Amino acid sequence: MSIRVLVADDQSMVRAGFRMLLANESDIEVVADASNGLEAVARAARLRPTVVLMDIRMPELDGLQATQRIIAADRTARVLILTTFALDDYVYEALRAGASGFVLKDDPPEQLIAAIRTVAAGDALLSPAITRRVIEQFTRIPRSTPPPELEHLTQREIDVFRSVARGLSNLEIGRELFISEMTVKTHVTHILQKLNLRDRVQAVVLAYQTGLFDARPVAHQPEHPPT
């Protein structure tokens, strides 16, 4: 099954460039484009693309508001934010709106294509630079109360959650905790399910919104003994 992409950007040359770039990928199909946020919301609702490439600054309705509306209408929607700067002022708001990742417009083509495949697979794309930005933003706001579902995490899941919040990849977490990458992926899946989160980005937001790993340790259930 091909990855269906909607490109939303107010510059026609940018939209054309993405179409040309992605036309060479056998597993990716650009199903439509949009020149503003309102068009993006309407076409996302009608076409149900796998991934929406969303520019932040657009007329009529900006990318942030468009992302909020798309996610509100379809919780499974995946939005990949297009930005000019790695530390865009809208990073924090876009994450809270439900964006699954960020790519720079001047990133190498292969990096953009990999990002689309990553997000389409249900993973999130959050670079260490973006993670640091999130941390900086959340240190300036009052902490909210951690959700009671945190009590359902095992100690190993807490360890993995802490590493996810630091922006580490599954491979890096596995090396740090001396477990396989597949085991890490399984733990991440369980964490997201238990906390009712869409993806890793929401996990990072929750961790720093609640001050989860800079306060008292979270109570947890013990790991099941090995069989």
Rank of each mutant, 00 (worst) to 15 (best):
Ala203Arg: 00
Ile28Val: 13
Arg4Gly: 06
Arg43Val: 06
Glu172Lys: 14
Gly122Gln: 00
Arg43His: 14
Glu136Trp: 01
Arg15Thr: 04
Thr145Phe: 00
Glu60Met: 13
Tyr90Phe: 11
Leu168Ala: 05
Ser163Trp: 04
Thr186Gly: 07
Ser144Thr: 15
Ser169His: 01
Gln193Ala: 14
Val5Ala: 07
Ala120Arg: 01
Gln68Cys: 04
Gly122Ala: 07
Arg78Asp: 08
Asp89Gln: 13
Met13Arg: 15
Ile179Met: 12
Ala97Cys: 06
Phe102Ala: 11
Val103Trp: 09
Phe18Glu: 01
Asn170Asp: 14
Ala165Asn: 00
Val30Thr: 06
Arg117Pro: 04
Leu197Gln: 11
Thr67Pro: 05
Ser180Ala: 12
Pro147Asn: 15
Val164Met: 11
Ala94Glu: 03
Glu93Ser: 08
Pro225Thr: 12
Arg43Leu: 15
Leu53Val: 08
Leu64Asp: 03
Pro146Glu: 10
Phe213Tyr: 13
Ala165Asp: 12
Asp74Trp: 01
Ser180Glu: 13
Glu25Arg: 06
His190Arg: 14
Ala99Leu: 10
Phe85Asn: 04
Leu87Tyr: 06
Asp214Ser: 15
Leu212Cys: 06
Pro147Ile: 12
Ile56Cys: 00
Ile70Tyr: 03
Ser2Val: 14
Ala44Ile: 03
Arg19Ala: 09
Arg57Cys: 03
Thr145Lys: 11
Leu95Trp: 11
Arg19Trp: 11
Met20Glu: 10
Gln209Met: 08
Asp62Phe: 08
Gly174Phe: 10
Ile113Phe: 08
Glu181Ser: 09
Ser35Asp: 13
Ser180Pro: 10
Asp106His: 09
Glu149Ile: 04
Ile56Gly: 03
Arg46Phe: 05
Gln202Gly: 12
Val41Pro: 06
Ile116Gly: 03
Thr189Phe: 02
Lys105Ser: 00
Thr83Ile: 11
Leu22His: 09
Ser12Phe: 06
Ala86Asp: 09
Gly101Gln: 06
Ala120His: 02
Val103His: 02
Gly122Tyr: 01
Leu192Ala: 13
Lys185Ser: 13
Ala219Gly: 03
His220Asn: 12
Val31Thr: 13
Leu177Val: 02
Ile158Asp: 02
Ile191Gly: 05
